[in-house]
Simulated assay, not measured.
Amino acid sequence: MLRVDHHRFRSALAEIEASIDAAWNTFCAGSGVTPGTPEAQELAQIVLQDTSEFDWRVVDGALKQLTCTECGNGLGAGPLGCAACDLANGFRFAAQETDRPDAQSRNEHALRVSSAVARTRHRYTPQARTGYELALPCLLAGRMPTTPQAQRAKDRINQLSDDELDRLIDPRPLYGDV
């Protein structure tokens, strides 16, 4: 079984998508805009003019509202080398991160990066996908690997073939108990 087909990964990804959608819908409601309308697309374009003013989930929600004029994919989710998507994907990382009260410090940053990788996995190497995707459920639960755990995991990941990486489902062989 591939990791992307495993319920652990699919559930984590669905939870992230739901949190992004909820943040976007709340932002739209606070702005007096109905989600899914042309006004919401205009609002998304305004958000992307200065992503540092907004929470990362709102920025990711804004990206989901727009289509790339160069490649036709969701903005920021197109293939590597699509200049507009590369730029939009970079803007995502300028957004604000507010640590959740029930999570370790800096967990929100790790969660944002892991979710970006998991949601646009074709933009990242098999090694990056593996590390971030395996950590995603733990990050959602408010936990995160220590620096030594992450370094050990990276060393182990770099020793595996792409096929072995895609079939890696359980994070414990890499991270231990997180």
Rank of each mutant, 00 (worst) to 15 (best):
L66M: 08
Y132A: 07
A128D: 11
Y175V: 04
L75E: 08
Q151S: 15
C82D: 04
E70W: 04
H109P: 01
G61P: 04
P126I: 13
A110H: 12
S52M: 03
R8T: 05
S115R: 05
N25V: 08
R129T: 05
T120R: 11
Q45K: 15
R57Y: 12
R129P: 00
D86S: 08
L139G: 02
D102I: 10
V33F: 07
I46P: 03
G72D: 07
N89M: 06
I20P: 00
Y124I: 06
T34A: 15
Q159W: 02
T69C: 06
R3Q: 13
P38S: 08
I157E: 02
T67N: 13
F54S: 05
T34W: 14
R57L: 14
F9G: 04
D55N: 09
V113A: 12
F91R: 12
I157S: 01
G61L: 04
E15C: 03
G76T: 05
G78C: 08
Q49L: 07
G76S: 08
L75W: 07
T67F: 09
S105T: 14
D55V: 09
D177W: 03
R143Q: 15
L87D: 15
Q96S: 07
Q65P: 10
G81V: 07
G76R: 02
P101W: 11
Q41E: 11
P148K: 11
A116P: 01
I46N: 10
E164W: 03
C82T: 05
A14Y: 00
C82E: 03
L168G: 00
T146P: 01
G72T: 07
L139C: 06
A118L: 08
M1E: 13
T146D: 06
R3H: 13
V33S: 06
L13Q: 07
L160I: 02
T147L: 14
R3W: 13
A116Y: 05
F54I: 09
A135N: 02
A77Y: 09
E42G: 10
E15F: 00
Y124W: 13
G61K: 01
R156N: 10
Q65N: 11
C71Y: 02
D60Q: 13
T98R: 11
N107Y: 04
S161P: 07
Q65L: 03
A29V: 14
G36S: 06
F27P: 02
C28H: 00
E70F: 09
G76H: 03
A110S: 14
I46K: 15
A44S: 08
D155W: 05
N107C: 12
W56I: 07
L63V: 08
